[in-house]
Each structure stands twice: as structure tokens, then as C-alpha cells.
Design a protein around this nucleic acid. Structure first.
Lengths: 339, 339
DNA sequence: TTGAAAGCGGTACCAG
DNA sequence: CTGGTACCGCTTTCAA
């Protein structure tokens, strides 16, 4: 393995000089510089990140802690993160927690060992219980580096956050159904331990109240953002009794669970039931399945997370910032009955 | 920041002793060990990966270079990788290339700086041209660490590989259509610069020949594994002339492009055309859309990649190994006409 | 059973 | 403009 010393010897200079060339600081004779650069290139030398970090007491690595890397939503977020990180010469250490709190804590420990320069995290689910929240919070604080929380805010969070207009998304989705003439409208909830789930639901409530519409308790389905539970709830509820005319689903997984149940029950969108989902589902768009949603720019969430991190590195004492990602209605027809 | 020295001082011993405790090697008095362990725990100390790597001349980091992190296929692969890496205390540095050869080379350079212990890579597309292949190959060789190539093998590759039964997948998909009574069967190709695309197509050819069926050139669509091109080709071909009875699509993206075109053209599966896709599409399964595929265990591909890497680390001189991921037919009905 | 010391590959200060 | 040197945090050998 090449080292700075070997390069120096090949060039007949000291390693100080090579270091100056590498970092492009301090004075170096033009001719010498060229010669050294040539040797570096010939030898295809690149300095050891470990040595640099150790000396500088600072890495160029940021840790990313994600709950479901196989969920396309997070795939898109990571795409945005890597894109922006690339631009700033940051490397990404990627940890998937599968929504498991213990794996999450282990991931943070790994990132601590790596002395990452900052952390981007979407907390695992299940932080309804106070002790777990506190544990997470103290782990994050202990890292003592900039933190950006993405998508899922949590109780007592004190960090920069890339957040979503959750209330607004629930509100707009509901309103779209109302304006299409639906009156009996239900809501398939997310995990109500999470703020994002509560806010989306509140948006729904607000829209209903505003329109003077009654909320039927049996049409409020207590999901948890997973496909499976959404499916079970819908299969049960939509299989009996008087159906709601319209339904708002709390996220992309919930939408899929609903669609699966509806398909199995033979319910047709815009004929038997109307629906607006929160979060788009790329595959449905590709298939041309008309599924109305409230959408957002997911990659932008990733890019903004890195930007917030960088700004925090530069200005540690600035006030906490929240990058609010807007929601936009994308109506495809499933919000209203046909004809 | 805590260091081993501070821990040593707190414990009233030398850092050598603390090191022995940390690494659990060498003799340490039981009482002393307990005391040190307690202090480590109290201080929540964890050693700096940079310092350890520098001294040991070895990291516990593996680099992952992926072409489309927002493709659920690769999301699943990464899930498998992180899962298995976790078990072995490896950290993952994750690079997304978006199928861009230059970003790929940049990624490898980053991994070189990081002195990763091994690399798992699915090469970007576009390695039809020899110079690009050679460049990639020499970059990989230069790293001088174990390499595992996943999914896309490439010319002159000399590394351990997690590969797929591509020929077999094309063969089985085609055979399923044939056995369901289809005779005029087309193939929507992948990027024929890639071996995986050629082999899938050869499987199709073989099955057709074996059955004594004629291949119509106009039903061979020159796709490139992307949704867009698949869509354009299908929209064009299926919009005119005598339709093929059956079609095999070369990967998940191709299948989506086909489905989009079919939907737009109003073609119904099992009524107007039959189809078997290579690679499953989770969303379709969830939706209960009957779409027959030849599938594989994607997460297993990721896990096996890490396993191959580990074995190569232990036995650098073993012969090259290929972990062949089997394909299995999952018929949902779209392979045959109804009634 | 423990400690002292060298050294991993860089950076940065200071002297020349 | 260049070189010598100390040091970052840790492991490992050697001596005690």
C-alpha cells in the first residue's frame, strides 16, 4: 500500500511537502508540485481516510439510520442523500434497522465508533413508550454531532428536522374527497404513537368538521402504517355493513393494504368506493392505475437532510431548523365516483 | 471525547491494560478487569475506528456499490447485505451510481480512501464498450481487496459472484407460456450488452426451439431493462399488427413498462395477451394483480454476497466461487388465456 | 500481570 | 519554499 512517505521518497522530498500538495495549502515550488502530482497520479495514491481522520480529529463520514431500506419511499430518500453527500465529499455509512429499536441503538453505537461527522435518522417505530424515546434521545445526544431527523419527528426532539406537511396532507386528501361529493368518509390511520400519524388524522378531522360532516367511528380504522394490518382492517370493515363512500389512507403501505383488500373483495375504485392516499406509489403511476394521492418530493427530503447537516456543522449555535416539505394533491380520479 | 488514555487514568492503569480488556486478550487481573469494564461502561466509551484501523492496518468496513438504490430490487439486496454484515460487525459504506460509469469510478476511489476491507458491486450498465470494462476492472484490481460481483456479471470478471440462473429463468418463463398453449411468443429484451440479458434471451430461444416454435423477429423487442424503453417498444409493437399471444419480459422494469403500455392500449392479461415476467414485483403481489413471474430470493443474494466476501477474506487463494441463486416459477394466471 | 514505547499514515507548526 | 518533528488514539512487542 502506498503511503505519503513512499511518495515523498519517490519525489525526493519530505512528506510535509507532499502533504502540502495534497491539500493544496502552503507554498510549494511549481516545478516540485508538478513532479509530485505526477508521481501521485502514476502511483494512483490516495491518502488513508483513517490517518487523516485521526490527525484532524474529524471524519468526512455521515451516518444514515433508516427503518426500512426495502421500502421505496426510503430508497428515494437515500438516493437524495447520497446525491447531495457526493457533492460535498461525504461518505455514507448506511444502517437499516427494520424498525427494530435495539438494532437502532446498535447502529448508533457503530456510528459512534466511526466518529461520524453527523447523523441522519428516521427513528424506528415504537417510540410511543417514554423510556425508549429517552434512550434514543440520550444516545443521539451522546454522539455530540449534528443530527437531522427525517420524516418522523419524535417527542422531545431537539434537532434539525426534515418534516412533512402532515396535517395539510390529511386535510387536502379529505377535502378532495369532500369536494368530489363524498360525505361518509373514513380514515385508515397510521401508528398513532407517532406525531406524523396524529397530524394526518387531525387534518382529516379538521376537513370533516369544516364541511360539517359527521365522522363515523366505525370508519376510523386503527392501522399502524403496515401493509398487513391495513389489509386486515380493510378486509374486515369493507366486507360488511354500510361502506364509507370515501377513504383516506395514512401512507403508502396503508394504501397497498387497502388496495389488496379492495381487490379481494371485488370493490372497484370510483364505483364502490373512493380513495385518496397519502404518499404516492411509483408502481401504480407506472401501471396507470388511477390512484389519487397527496404527494411529496422524496428525494428532496434526502437532499435537504444533508443540507441541514452541513449548515449545522458550520453554525452549531443557530436556532433549530425545520425544512418543511410541501404536499401537493395529485388527483387521478379515484377521489370521485364515475359518471 | 473519551480516549483509551483517559479511561486508563481513571482506572489508574496504563492504556495497555485497558486495551487488553477491550480486546479480551492477554492477561488481566480479574479485579482490575472488572474495574476497567465498569469505567468503560460508566463513561460509555467506545474506541475510535480510525485509530484502530490505522494501527491494525485493517478496517471493518465494506463498500457497497449499487446502480439504482431506489429500485426495490436493490433495496432488497441491500437489506440482505446489511443484515448479514451486522452479524459480522461490518459497517457498510453505501454508494449509489445511478448506472453512471463515472460515478462508479468515483465511488471506488472513495472506497479506496476508506481502505474498505472488501467491496460488493453491481456494475453500472453500459459496460458493453471494452475500454469502460477494462477501466472498471483495473480499478477493482487496484483496490486489492476481496470483491464480490452481484447480479450483473461482466466480461473478464475474475471475482466471486452472486449470480442468477438467467438462462433458466428465460427458459422457464417461455416454457410456462408454451405449456399453456401459446405458440406465437415474443421476448422483451434487456440491455444485450449484458451477459444476464443475453442468457435470459438464450433461455427463451432454447425453449422455443425445443418446442419447435418459430420466433418472429418483430416480436423480439430490443429493450434495455428500463421502464421507459420497454413502454415505448410495447406501445409501438402492441399497438399494431398481429399481436404475439405471449410475451416474456426481461426484468422487473421491463414488466412495468409492458404493463403500462398494455393498460394504455386497453389490452387485458389472459384475454388479449399472456405474459410471464422475469423477477417478481412486490407491489403487484400485494395488489393481487395476477402476474406470473420467475422469481428469486433477492435478500438472499445480499446475504450471500457478504458470506462470499468473508470466505474470501479467510481463504484468499481459494478458487473463484459463484453463488448461483435459483429461479422458481410463480404462476398467477397471466401465462394462459382464460376459459 | 502490568507498563513503556514504538509506530500505523497523515497534518501542521516552527525553524531555517 | 522546504524539512523536521510532535502528535492524533490505538495495538503490540518486550521487559520487568
Amino acid at each position: 500500500m502506498m503511503t505519503i512517505l513512499k511518495i515523498a521518497e519517490l519525489a525526493g522530498v519530505s512528506k510535509s511537502t507532499v502533504s502540502r500538495v495534497l491539500n493544496n495549502n502552503g507554498y510549494v515550488n511549481d516545478e516540485t508540485r508538478r513532479r509530485i502530482e505526477q508521481i501521485i497520479k502514476d502511483q494512483d495514491y490516495t491518502p488513508s481516510a483513517a490517518a487523516v481522520s485521526l490527525k484532524k480529529q474529524e471524519t468526512n463520514t455521515i451516518g444514515v439510520v433508516i427503518p426500512e431500506i426495502d421500502n421505496s419511499f426510503f430508497g428515494e430518500v437515500i438516493k437524495g442523500i447520497t446525491e447531495e453527500a457526493d457533492k460535498n465529499d461525504f461518505s455514507i455509512i448506511c444502517c437499516d434497522t427494520q424498525n427494530n429499536g435495539e438494532r437502532e441503538l446498535r447502529a448508533l453505537r457503530t456510528l459512534e465508533q466511526q466518529r461520524v461527522r453527523g447523523v441522519i435518522i428516521t427513528p424506528a417505530l415504537g417510540y410511543g413508550e417514554l423510556p425508549a424515546v429517552k434512550k434514543l434521545k440520550s444516545q443521539l445526544e451522546k454522539l455530540d454531532v449534528p443530527i437531522v431527523v427525517v420524516d418522523r419527528d419524535f417527542q422531545y426532539s431537539i434537532w434539525d428536522t426534515v418534516y412533512y406537511e402532515n396535517f395539510q396532507s390529511g386535510y387536502l386528501a379529505t377535502k378532495a374527497l369532500i369536494e368530489s361529493g363524498n360525505k361518509k368518509i373514513g380514515f385508515l390511520q397510521g401508528d398513532m404513537n407517532l406525531k406524523i400519524a396524529k397530524e394526518r388524522f387531525e387534518g382529516y378531522t379538521e376537513a370533516m368538521n369544516e364541511a360539517g360532516l359527521k365522522i363515523n367511528q366505525e370508519d376510523i380504522l386503527p392501522g399502524n402504517f403496515s401493509v398487513e394490518v391495513a389489509y386486515e382492517l380493510c378486509k374486515d370493515r369493507l366486507g360488511r355493513g354500510e361502506l364509507p363512500e370515501g377513504l383516506v389512507t395514512a401512507n403508502n403501505r396503508s394504501s397497498l393494504g387497502f388496495l389488496k383488500a379492495a381487490t379481494e373483495l371485488g370493490l372497484k375504485l370510483s364505483e364502490d368506493i373512493c380513495v385518496v392516499g397519502i404518499d404516492h406509489i411509483p408502481t401504480l403511476d407506472i401501471l396507470g392505475i388511477p390512484f389519487s394521492t397527496v404527494s411529496r418530493d422524496t428525494e428532496e427530503m434526502g437532499r435537504n437532510a444533508v443540507k441541514l447537516l452541513r449548515e449545522r456543522m458550520e453554525h452549531p449555535d443557530n436556532a433549530r431548523r425545520i425544512s418543511m416539505i410541501p404536499c401537493r394533491l395529485e388527483l387521478k380520479g379515484s377521489e370521485k365516483f364515475r359518471g
